[in-house]
Write a protein that binds this DNA or RNA. Structure first.
Lengths: 150, 150
DNA sequence: TCAGAACGTTGGCTTCACCAACGTTGGTAG
DNA sequence: CTACCAACGTTGGTGAAGCCAACGTTCTGA
């Protein structure tokens, strides 16, 4: 992003979807920079976080929880197994499923990435007071609940 | 997005950068659907909006104002000229530059797209009161100002 | 005047979000 | 029990969006 950007058109600048887009883009830059240190990307973190929090799960379940398409879960899990962060095993109780579990290294990495993410939040929300951060979080949460709870 | 998504990990669900990402993704889906009717995409709208608001400009200027890379401006302007929405002319005062101007059809399309965008905002912000919408807008604006004003 | 900056352009890359199709396996209605 | 349909993992592909490096041309400032 050009720091020296002339004022963008008001037609964009005052449009919530534009603001969301730009704020998310910027957050994404910070997050990506943080993840680069771990040599991992967004999909990887989402999966590790889900596994660290709720334990082993099928790929389909992970996809639903992390908002990642089934086919993209395959590739990301491949990456993670290749790095020894995760193990893929057939589910004896349902032979359609694979059970994905964290290895010890995976659990460690999940913690480290969570720390990185936490630092990025502070960076991202620097200009806001703690009350304002809560406000923003609540507004966004309501938005998402409305649009997913249908 | 799966409407039936089981609860995502709290480690994500309560993280502002995740909320921003998801909200922006959803907004993007609504916006894209709206733009599909016009057979145009996000970059096209940004450029048309900037031109409609501030008049003719060089490609580099447009790129800075719309947060689009120089090289991507080239392609988008090519598209727009191909549709007769925009004209590209060399700047006699600075032969490095091209001056991009809206045609009449381009100005019309800019208005129609602005209407589409306005409708999408209402859809997107449906769950929020007008005061809350202002709050959200202000918080996001402050975030962006902080991170671009450096 | 001459070095460096700005401009437009080409070509390439990565991430993320999707979609369609297939074979395999489970569950269920008849 | 069988037929049918749903769910799962997988492959392969698409497109938008955001970037970066390099080049030749043109302008500008020291």
């Amino acid at each position: 992003m050009d720091a020296t950007a002339p004022q963008s058109p008001a037609g964009l600048r005052t449009t919530p979807s534009w603001l969301l887009n730009q704020a998310a883009t910027h957050a994404g830059r910070l997050i990506s920079a943080g993840f680069a240190v771990h040599d991992l990307r967004g999909y990887h973190y989402r999966l590790l976080a889900a596994l660290a929090e709720s334990g082993p799960a099928s790929q389909a379940d992970l996809g639903r929880r992390c908002a990642i398409d089934r086919s993209d879960v395959v590739a990301a899990v491949n990456d993670l197994t290749g790095r020894g962060l995760v193990v893929r095993a057939p589910d004896p109780a349902d032979r359609r499923r694979n059970v994905i579990s964290l290895t010890e290294a995976g659990a460690d990495e999940a913690h480290r990435m969570a720390d990185t993410v936490a630092r990025v939040q502070d960076d991202l929300l620097a200009p806001l007071s703690s009350a304002e951060r809560d406000q923003l979080t609540r507004l966004l949460t309501r938005l998402l609940e409305h649009h997913s709870g249908h």
